[in-house]
Design a binder for these strands. Structure first.
Lengths: 252, 252
DNA sequence: CGATATTGTAACAATTTGTAACTGCGCTTT
DNA sequence: AAAGCGCAGTTACAAATTGTTACAATATCG
């Protein structure tokens, strides 16, 4: 999905000299690799020898504390790149939530191409910036939001299609545990909160792992917090429209 | 401090053709600007027209939710860059905690130079990667750590000198409120936790805003969690040594 | 169709927060 | 220099939220 968006951008308004190939073009020729739901693509600490592009399916990026506490640092969707790194080891484990199809590229090759094609570097940089913004929004979410707000935000995030629009039917491929470990709460609290939302008539279950949003506005105002400017839902991750200024520090 | 480290790196083992100027060289010629403690360098939502390099003092990067909840996204120290952005508005407010000295550069000029000097782009990219790693560590800290662990981590972070070594004397220029808004807790809990650490003989107050670590190991094991590999303190931010693999996603 | 895993519910416990009074330090004022 | 003020920080106690534990209900998979 992100893939499509960028491809479109490349073709149309090419911010680079000519309409040159995007980052995803590096993977186009690579064979598809499939992973079963639950299997790991790579492990935290592994040699970071490859990069992957998600073609189909959903994955989770997991970190573990030594005492077993689990943190899901993010979910990956089609079009997302994983394994980009300047370091030599993966920082987290990536596991398939649904069956997944990926294309693999060696890191050596990737870096060569990045070096050769400056516009790819620009794209990579831009992507990193977006990632950074998302990470900060996640920080805000985790540090100062109640269980209700967290879940509302999560549901809104999941309700977005590839263009950032909110759909009423929401598919939730991950388990409650995944949600909990992403939002920094327990499955029980997640469960309670969803029950509460259902009882208030804001959402309704349409299946075990899918639901419908009945009152989108109510859900938005629950998720609300700092979105005075956009008026729209909280920017948790992966929200193309209305992203505003990332600001990085760390000097030279 | 980061500034020095990089300068040294440039001079010695130059990962780039010759020993070319670092990012900070862009700011060297700019005049010093001073800000009083408590004053803002820029505001969330402002036009992101300039970049700044911290020469002296400590600052905080603050975001506000509409209902007044405050989140400190990070603290900035000498050598840190602020205002790097691909977007056109600052994402957060930056305020001086202590009196501060900065050098300012227009964004236009910065981007020109980045475009002209590829090795600067490399440095910027590398810095972004570090930032990303730090942001993820912060995510872990906020989502799955108890008050004790958070405060222990914070104190260890503050106890690091410019080379990443832990000093016994810790200076804490920020208020309890700043700490609380950074760690996602209340001032009372911060205070109670520090008292607890003092009563356990792990730290001792040496002044209103400074303390001494009496049992560094105990503090480390409190802060502990996922540091099996490094054996060292939690990587919260700004820890030069032993940083391991950042892995970014978000495709092309 | 039965075994297993996931999810939901509820009572109870632990942690964290909220409230509010109080201390101590630094500053101004007299 | 002493008194008075204000602010940051601390502490005690009550309240709320979230986490724990246990068990029932439901789906999923072989």
């Amino acid at each position: 999905m992100s893939l499509q968006v960028v491809a479109i951008r490349d073709a149309r308004e090419a911010p680079i000299p000519l309409s040159q190939p995007g980052l995803s073009s590096l993977f186009d020729r690579q064979p598809l690799e499939r992973f079963d739901a639950g299997s790991a693509v790579f492990w935290e600490g592994d040699d970071a020898a490859h990069l992957f592009q998600v073609t189909a399916g959903i994955l989770r990026a997991v970190r573990l504390l030594s005492d077993g506490r689990r943190i899901i640092v993010g979910f990956l969707r089609p079009g997302d790149l994983l394994g980009v790194s300047l370091k030599d080891r993966y920082l987290y484990t990536v596991e398939a939530i649904t069956p997944v199809a990926l294309r693999r590229l060696s890191r050596r090759r990737f870096e060569e191409e990045i070096r050769r094609q400056p516009q790819l570097r620009d794209q990579l940089f831009s992507r990193l910036c977006d990632e950074m913004t998302a990470a900060q929004d996640q920080t805000v979410l985790l540090s100062r939001r109640s269980a209700d707000e967290k879940v509302a935000n999560f549901l809104l995030m999941m309700s977005r299609d590839e263009f950032g629009n909110c759909t009423r039917i929401v598919d939730i491929p991950m388990t409650r545990l995944d949600m909990a470990d992403y939002l920094g709460m327990t499955i029980e609290t997640v469960s309670r909160t969803i029950t509460k939302l259902t009882n208030s008539g804001i959402i309704t279950a349409t299946g075990r792992r899918s639901m419908m949003v009945l009152k989108m506005d109510a859900l938005r105002s629950l998720a609300d917090g700092d979105n005075g400017e956009t008026g729209c839902c909280q920017r948790v991750r992966d929200m193309p429209p209305h992203r505003d200024g990332l600001t990085v520090w760390k000097s030279a």
